[in-house]
Design a protein around this nucleic acid. Structure first.
Lengths: 337, 337
DNA sequence: CTGAAAGCGCTTACAG
DNA sequence: CTGAAAGCGCTTACAG
């Protein structure tokens, strides 16, 4: 039923080479021949098949992106940037959702083996040294976002700095008992955010109180859920005396924390992380990451590497920015002094 | 550099047919031969290429999913269901993000033409009659989620009913001036939700007041944004006398509306739509849709159709459910009677 | 259990 | 400007 290049060639009374040329805008084709082929193709509903093209050409003009979580704004912003860039360069994007219940490494490895794309973008995927090395052996263009490995181009944001900024803000306000709602300890960004917190405390000679660090029980999505924030904050609120302020590993998590505080009628100033759109509407002070730039940069270096595989890997680190809104204020809006 | 089936065949001293057989678990292969091939493949880093396989086989064992928006929970739940089902059946999923700034129809048509997959799932894609007909001509397995067309299998939720339920709830409370924060008029679900609202009013003999229906100015994402909710609610709050209650086209939109109310210090009971995770933490009363079931059902019918293309199209409509939380209460928690 | 060969639907030098 | 032919890397009857 589906038409092939042979059908069109025959109908147009030309060779398949000519049909191929008109579809690829390659080589010279007489205008009248070209028009005829195009008209026929349209009429018969023909278009070259990707799989045949992919095999015959050496290039697929497509890149594949792996993501573990795509329901958040962090990812959406990055995706938008990647698509904008790719569209401009006439590349296609294939998104593969790495399942939480499967082994991320295996899933990625499988696709690389099969040579799906000309290049790959890893978003928020965190592997062990051995795993990174094993991936490196595929010797295929890869850009890493939100993590880094010396063998690949990478873009990330300075998570230590972001968390440092938030903590420092509270320290400068004179607070010394600053809680921290953290997430899955295995994730690199989480580790770094914890480091920034500790660094800020240390620089102000404030002793670390481990009770003030809570992560909640729900560790789905690496602990970046409303539920885990709610749980963690509930624990914080049981501490006596109450902490004076709180930093949080993500906006979503902070939403849960806000709920816990509301239930108890307690209001501790809080600064979270991500600056999702919703943060503005909920009045969350938070740490902003330049996601669009990150996506653009990662795509650019991937595309360059596809052109020239011998480029040496680049590592780009962006600075985060503190966005202040009402949640970091000592009194709530509902309870003005 | 990358190895092919010929390299392995040669190294193992067998024909490429045999190598193919061991990778496909097809036909009989002596255990010793099989082990040898596998060991060699592992050593040399060989795996069949998708594009060559796709061409040689008639089947690709992959399905492609088109989505305009993937940052919301509605989509994530559906995605989860689809992946679960597909993994079980050993199919692969390719997600294509249909760009808001491009022509969705063109993008979809392009991929269908190229015959990327064995079947396609359209999520929240709303086309005109002519467009659907044109898509139908490809004669390829398609499942539609969140819309419907008689030529394809479809699953949707009864949006009229959902909105009716929400409106009815307020009517039963004795309210007659019920506002409606709606979204882009072009989207079918939006139209239906408007119908449900009108139906409820009519059944209670309440005259429709068009001023009470607002959609806001920001029409990105079909008007399902915090910003548009904020804008729409601001307009509602200027109406005198103030409406007694309000229904809203989505949770995200309601977040913006909540913000607008907070700024004015006014609190109108509100029921939104979607039941995102966040709704629970923000205390939003909302209309819940059985997303996981929808995803599962859509995938099942798609897979059945791939097996047997002659099945007649099915249309499944799910009933929504009203979830009551604090936002629909007449007084806010911050201001107890 | 295994191999030779045709075929999947394209692209791309090469020749003219 | 156009065609004949080789090749991309696999799968799959067909034969043995």
């Amino acid at each position: 039923m589906p038409k092939t290049i042979y059908d069109i060639a025959q109908a147009a009374g030309v060779s398949i080479a000519t049909v191929s040329r008109v579809f690829n805008d390659k080589g010279q084709v007489k205008k009248s021949t070209r028009d005829k082929v195009l008209a026929l193709a349209d009429e018969l509903g023909y278009h070259p098949q990707v799989f045949a093209q992919g095999l015959a050409r050496k290039k697929k003009n497509s890149i594949m992106m792996f993501v573990p979580i795509m329901s958040n704004h962090f990812f959406m912003e990055i995706l938008g940037a990647i698509q904008d860039k790719l569209t401009a360069k006439n590349f296609e994007l294939n998104i593969v959702h790495v399942m939480a219940n499967g082994d991320a490494f295996e899933q990625v490895e499988y696709q690389l083996k099969r040579q799906w794309a000309d290049g790959y973008i890893f978003v928020s995927l965190h592997f062990s040294k051995e795993q990174w090395e094993s991936i490196e052996r595929f010797d295929v263009p890869i850009s890493v976002i939100d993590d880094s490995y010396h063998g690949f181009d990478s873009v990330a944001v300075d998570n230590i700095e972001g968390s440092y900024l938030a903590t420092k803000y509270f320290i400068d306000k004179g607070y010394t008992r600053i809680a921290n709602l953290t997430a899955a300890a295995s994730a690199i960004p989480v580790k770094d955010r914890l480091k920034g917190y500790k660094k800020a405390l240390k620089s102000a000679s404030i002793e670390l109180d481990k009770n003030l660090i809570q992560r909640g029980d729900d560790m789905s999505r690496d602990g970046f859920t409303e539920k885990s924030g709610y749980e963690a904050m509930k624990k914080i609120l049981e501490i006596k005396p109450l902490p004076e302020a709180c930093i949080c590993a993500s906006d979503i998590k902070a939403i849960g924390a806000l709920k816990a505080m509301e239930e108890k009628g307690i209001n501790i100033p809080i600064i979270s992380y991500d600056n999702l759109t919703i943060a503005k509407y909920v009045g969350l002070s938070t740490v902003h990451q330049p996601m669009y730039e990150m996506g653009t940069r990662a795509t650019e270096s991937l595309l360059s590497r596809i052109e020239n595989p011998r480029l040496s890997p680049s590592k780009t680190i962006y600075k985060p920015e503190l966005i202040l809104r009402s949640s970091s204020e000592p009194v709530s809006q509902h309870d003005p002094v």
